[in-house]
């Protein structure tokens, strides 16, 4: 209906946004009848979301037409923001922000660099930034899951870990089962996304490429490429993140740090 009546792209976009936001607000109001006070939060989130994304769109419109180095600068800023968000999941754990920053930079950063070098991602900022941001966002989520799970495992198994230390085991040996569990859990979403690709969902990048006139076959192959890159960058992020977290969990004298150790008595 909107497409039939409105031909100006900006006006069309605003109308579509209003329609989608109205539906979200209607659902939030319906939730209120079930005793869930969601309408206020939803209204604020919708307002904030549309403002942020329009602002980012305007900045991107300027930067993407700029020289090649605008791409890496934007990606570095995104990695820093992702590390900040991700580290909240491991709040209270010593060095959580630094661990997240190094992990996402190593995982997503190196994947973007390698793929750009190999020509899998186009060097132009217009291509590098959107694809890079997808890798960074997924690495951020995987890192948050891994750190949250690993910290919870360390806290709930501090007795077993200290028992193993008391038997002369090295710190890395004592936490190995919990590290494996955290890694496995954090990689479930990207692995499941690959498994269900095309069957349960047709991802945005493929839909976008088809809508903008690309060959559906190439669009589908490239979508697989993107998901494989997401799996690689998320996996590497989690491996680096949990490794750094494991090192920070122990003192140089191989003692569990007080944040994780049993309560003093």
């Amino acid at each position: 209906m909107l497409l039939y009546w409105i031909h100006d792209r900006i006006l069309l976009g605003v109308s579509q946004a209003l329609f989608a936001a109205s539906l979200a607000l209607a659902v939030a109001l319906f939730a209120r009848t079930r005793g869930v006070a969601l309408a206020g939060d939803a209204a604020i989130a919708l307002g904030r979301g549309i403002s942020q994304i329009i602002l980012v769109g305007l900045i991107l419109a300027v930067l993407l037409k700029g020289p090649w180095w605008t791409g890496p600068i934007l990606l570095f800023a995104m990695i820093a923001a992702a590390a900040k968000t991700s580290s909240r999941r491991a709040k209270g754990f010593p060095g959580a922000l630094r661990i997240s920053l190094y992990a996402i930079a190593a995982g997503a950063g190196s994947t973007i660099f390698l793929m750009a070098l190999a020509g899998v991602i186009d060097h132009s900022a217009a291509s590098l930034v959107p694809i890079g941001s997808m890798l960074i966002a997924n690495a951020m989520n995987a890192n948050a899951l891994a750190l949250d799970r690993f910290r919870a495992e360390l806290q709930s198994h501090s007795g077993e870990i200290e028992s193993a230390l008391s038997l002369g085991a090295a710190p890395a040996v004592t936490v190995a089962p919990y590290l494996r569990g955290a890694l496995r859990a954090s990689l479930i979403p990207p692995v499941d996304n690959l498994r269900s690709l095309g069957i349960v969902w047709i991802p945005g990048i493929m839909a976008g490429m088809i809508l903008s006139g690309a060959s559906p076959l190439y669009a589908s192959i490239y979508q697989f490429v993107v998901l494989a890159m997401i799996l690689a960058s998320s996996g590497l992020t989690c491996i680096v993140g949990t490794h750094l977290m494991q090192r920070r969990a122990f003192s140089p004298a191989e003692q569990l740090v007080p944040e994780l150790s049993a309560v003093e008595s």
């Binding site: 230390l165 008391s166 038997l167 002369g168 085991a169 090295a170 004298a253 191989e254 003692q255």
Partner: peptide
């Protein structure tokens, strides 16, 4: 530490 904890169980 590993050796100490072996000797002091």
């Amino acid at each position: 530490p590993c050796e100490l904890r072996r000797r002091v169980g």
